[in-house]
């Protein structure tokens, strides 16, 4: 799920709001596909950098792409993919992006936009909780779990409606999935409202 999340947020970073309206998402998608080979490389590389630094490389956290590449290769020279791993990373992400943009149907992208929105809202709530304290803990908890729960349910809906997963769910048609989704969301929000005080 994080992949879509990242993509959508990068789209947001490019100035297109991830509002759940079909047209805007379409435009953003087309724009990104066109510009992608040239423009999308640097921000993705920085995300890679963030990943790599958070895990293995403590000493030098430089911002430029090239140095990251060097350190990574220096560290993991023993592994089989000893080539330029940074480029491999670039490739991984560009592959991911193209795959996503090629194969994802429009409706699913809509769902993804909604999920990205939920992530943002949840992140904001969490940030508020960390910064401003969690005094009405009920309120924070119900708000946060509403977003998390809704995110999970939406992810489930997305999984169930994806064509590729059809074999996993012989008894769940997309309509059924949507009905289930509605019922579950109703239950979720009933509990949240009840819990919020």
């Amino acid at each position: 799920m994080g992949g879509k999340r990242k993509n959508a947020s990068s789209a947001a970073a490019r100035g297109v709001s991830p509002s759940p309206s079909a047209t805007s998402t379409t435009t953003s998608a087309t724009v990104t596909t066109k510009v992608q080979p040239k423009e999308s490389a640097p921000p993705i590389a920085t995300t890679t950098n963030a990943f790599a630094t958070s895990t293995q490389i403590e000493p030098t956290t430089t911002t430029t792409t090239t140095s990251t590449t060097k350190t990574t290769t220096g560290k993991s020279s023993g592994s089989s993919s000893s080539g330029a791993q940074g480029q491999a990373w670039n490739k991984v992400f560009s592959n991911l992006l193209t795959h996503y943009q090629d194969t994802t149907p429009q409706r699913t992208k809509l769902i993804d936009a909604f999920m990205a929105f939920l992530v943002v809202v949840g992140g904001l709530q969490f940030l508020y909780c960390v910064l401003a304290g969690n005094y009405p803990f009920n309120a924070f908890l119900s708000g946060f779990s509403a977003t998390v729960g809704q995110f999970v349910l939406t992810a489930s809906l997305r999984i169930q409606t994806t064509e590729a997963n059809k074999s996993d769910f012989p008894s769940v048609s997309p309509e059924r999935a949507f009905a289930d989704y509605l019922v579950c969301s109703l239950i979720l929000h009933f509990f949240c409202v009840n819990f919020i005080n």
């Binding site: 779990s145 998390v148 729960g149 999970v152 992810a155 579950c184 979720l188 509990f191 009840n194 819990f195």
Partner: peptide, 13 residues
Amino acid sequence: CTWYALGTLASMQ
């Protein structure tokens, strides 16, 4: 995930 998200909220009631 459905069980956990809904069940945890339900248990907190």
